[in-house]
Design a protein around this nucleic acid. Structure first.
Length: 415
RNA sequence: GUGGCCGUAGCUCAGUUGGUUAGAGCGCCAGGUUGUGGUCCUGGAAGUCGGGGGUUCGAAUCCCCUCGGUCACCCCA
C-alpha cells in the first residue's frame, strides 16, 4: 500500500470517470444558464456561525461539521452544504433581485463513509433569492428534473411537501408535540426525549415504532394558513402543467432547519441502498434575515454528484465517454516533426496526440489505437503517410505542408 | 459514534490441514507473426502478502493490536 492515500471518506476522480463529472457539470451549467441563472463561486469555508445559525438542531451542523480554528483565531467551518454560503454572499453583496444563482462545489461532512456517502461530496445547486412566487418553486424543481432527464435517468421519484411558515407552522408544531407526547411511550428511545426540541424530525424517523406513531399524526398540509395553502396549490398545479410527476409526502422533513413552505427530495428508485436521495431542496424564506439581511424569500436545491452518477450506473445511462483524439502523430525520424505537426494540428482545432520517448513504430501505432484516434500520420525517413485507424485502409502519402488541410478534409468527410 | 465482512502485482483474484525461490488473467514494456494495424506467439518488469507485535523449527495462512477498504445503523447529497 502506498504511504499516502486520499483521506478517509474522500476520493480521487481520474479519467475516464472524471469525464462524466465534467459532462454532468457541463449539462447542468447549460440548462441553468439557459434559465437565467449565473454562476456563483463562493468560499469552501465560512465563519462557523454562518452554518450554526441555520441548523442548530440538525446532525449536519451539530455532529458532522468540519470546524477548526485558523491561525488568526477565527472559528471556521468547511461548508456542509451550499445554501448558507450562497445566502451569506447574497446578504453581503445585495445584488438585484430576483437573484438567480447556480454553483458546483464540494461539501464536507465528518461522518463514516459508506456507499454514496463521503466526507467530501460534490453538489450541483441553484438558489433564487427575492421572489416568493410559486412559479419560481416550479421552475427550480423543473430544473433538477430537467437535468435528470437530460442525462437519461428515468427512475427518479419526486417527493413534495409544504412545511408552512411562521404563521401556520407554530400551531402545527404544537399539534405534533401534543400528538407525540400523548404517545411518548411508543416512540423510539432517541425521540422519546426529544419531542419538544424538533417534533418534525420524528416524522422522518425510520424506526418502525416512530413510523407507527407518525402514521395518524397531524399533517402540515392540512393546517397550512391562508397564504401557504394557495402557494402550495399553485406549486402543484404548476408541476402538473409541466407534466412533472410527484408524490405529496406529508412526512417529508428536510435535514436542515431553515426550510419553509415548499420542500422536495429526489429519490433514485434504481438505488436500493438507503443512500438513494440524490437531491433535495426547498424554500427558506427566513434564512436571509437570520443571516443579518433584509427579510428576503428564497428557494433552491442541492444535488449530489456522486449519487447521481451511482444512479446512472444503476440505470446503465450516462456512461463515461470514450476519450478519443482525432489524429495521432507517429514519428520514427527522431526529429521535431511530431512536435511541430501535433502543435499545428492542435492550433487548427484538431484533437491530436503523439507518443514520446522514441518508441518503435509498432509501439506508437498501438498507442494511436489506444488513444482512439481516427487518423494516424506517420512520419518516416521515406516520407509522410496518413491512414485511417478505425477501419483498415491504405496509407496515403501526404506532403508536409498539406497535412492540416488534408486532416481537416478527412475528418469533415467522416462526420 | 456503534457493529458485520474484507486487505496477496497497477486492476480482478488463486494460494491445500502452517512447509522450499508467492502464482494466474488483464494491463504495461520488448521481440516475433500478421499487408509495418485491434489477433496470435515468446519473453520481461512489477508484490517488505496493509503495518506492528505474538505463537512456532517454520506464518500470506493461527492469535492480538493498529491502519485502510467496504457494508449496515445513525444521518444525509
Amino acid at each position: 500500500m502506498p504511504e499516502y492515500r486520499a483521506p478517509v471518506g474522500t476520493r480521487d476522480v481520474l479519467p475516464p470517470e472524471s469525464a462524466r463529472w465534467a459532462g454532468l457539470v457541463a449539462r447542468f451549467a447549460t440548462q441553468v444558464g439557459r434559465a437565467g441563472y449565473g454562476l456563483v463561486v463562493s468560499p469552501m469555508f465560512e465563519d462557523v456561525e454562518v452554518f450554526g445559525r441555520v441548523g442548530e438542531t440538525t446532525d449536519v451542523v451539530r455532529k458532522e461539521m468540519y470546524d477548526f480554528e485558523d491561525k488568526g483565531g477565527r472559528r471556521i467551518a468547511l461548508r456542509p452544504e451550499g445554501t448558507a454560503s450562497l445566502v451569506r454572499a447574497f446578504v453581503q453583496h445585495r445584488p438585484p433581485t430576483p437573484f438567480k444563482a447556480w454553483y458546483a462545489a464540494p461539501s464536507f461532512r465528518y461522518e463514516r463513509p459508506q456507499a454514496g456517502r463521503y466526507r467530501q461530496h460534490h453538489q450541483l445547486g441553484v438558489e433564487v433569492l427575492g421572489s416568493e412566487d410559486a412559479d419560481i418553486d416550479v421552475e427550480v424543481i423543473a430544473l433538477a428534473d430537467g437535468l435528470f432527464r437530460e442525462i437519461g435517468l428515468t427512475q427518479v421519484d419526486l417527493h413534495l411537501n409544504s412545511l408552512g411558515d411562521d404563521r401556520c407552522r407554530p400551531a402545527y408544531r404544537e399539534a405534533l408535540i401534543e400528538w407525540f407526547t400523548a404517545r411518548r411511550g411508543d416512540l423510539c428511545d432517541e425521540h422519546r426525549e426529544r419531542i419538544a426540541e424538533n417534533p418534525l424530525r420524528i416524522l422522518d424517523c425510520k424506526r418502525p415504532e416512530c413510523r407507527a406513531v407518525s402514521e395518524g399524526a397531524p399533517r402540515m398540509v392540512d393546517m397550512l394558513c391562508e397564504d401557504c395553502a394557495p402557494h402550495f396549490a399553485r406549486v402543484r398545479a404548476g408541476l402538473d402543467a409541466l407534466g412533472i410527476a410527484y408524490t405529496v409526502d406529508p412526512r417529508l422533513v428536510r435535514g436542515l432547519d431553515y426550510y419553509t413552505r415548499t420542500t422536495f427530495e429526489f429519490a433514485a428508485a434504481a438505488l436500493e441502498s438507503s443512500q438513494n436521495g440524490i437531491g433535495g431542496g426547498g424554500r427558506y424564506d427566513g434564512l436571509a434575515e437570520a443571516l443579518g439581511g433584509d427579510p428576503t424569500p428564497g428557494i433552491g436545491f442541492g444535488l449530489g454528484v456522486e449519487r447521481i452518477l451511482l444512479a446512472c450506473d444503476a440505470e446503465g445511462v450516462f456512461g463515461a465517454p470514450d476519450a478519443a483524439v482525432d489524429v495521432f502523430v507517429i514519428d520514427t525520424t527522431g526529429g521535431d516533426a511530431a512536435l511541430a505537426i501535433t502543435h499545428e494540428l492542435r492550433a487548427a482545432g484538431v484533437a491530436a496526440d503523439r507518443a514520446f520517448d522514441n518508441r518503435s513504430w509498432k509501439a506508437q501505432l498501438k498507442a494511436a489505437q489506444r488513444a482512439g484516434a481516427a487518423l494516424a500520420i506517420s512520419v518516416e525517413a521515406e516520407g509522410i503517410t496518413i491512414r485511417t485507424l478505425r477501419e483498415k485502409g491504405q496509407a496515403e502519402p501526404v506532403d508536409r505542408a498539406d497535412i492540416v488541410e488534408h486532416v481537416r478534409k478527412r475528418l469533415a468527410a467522416a462526420d
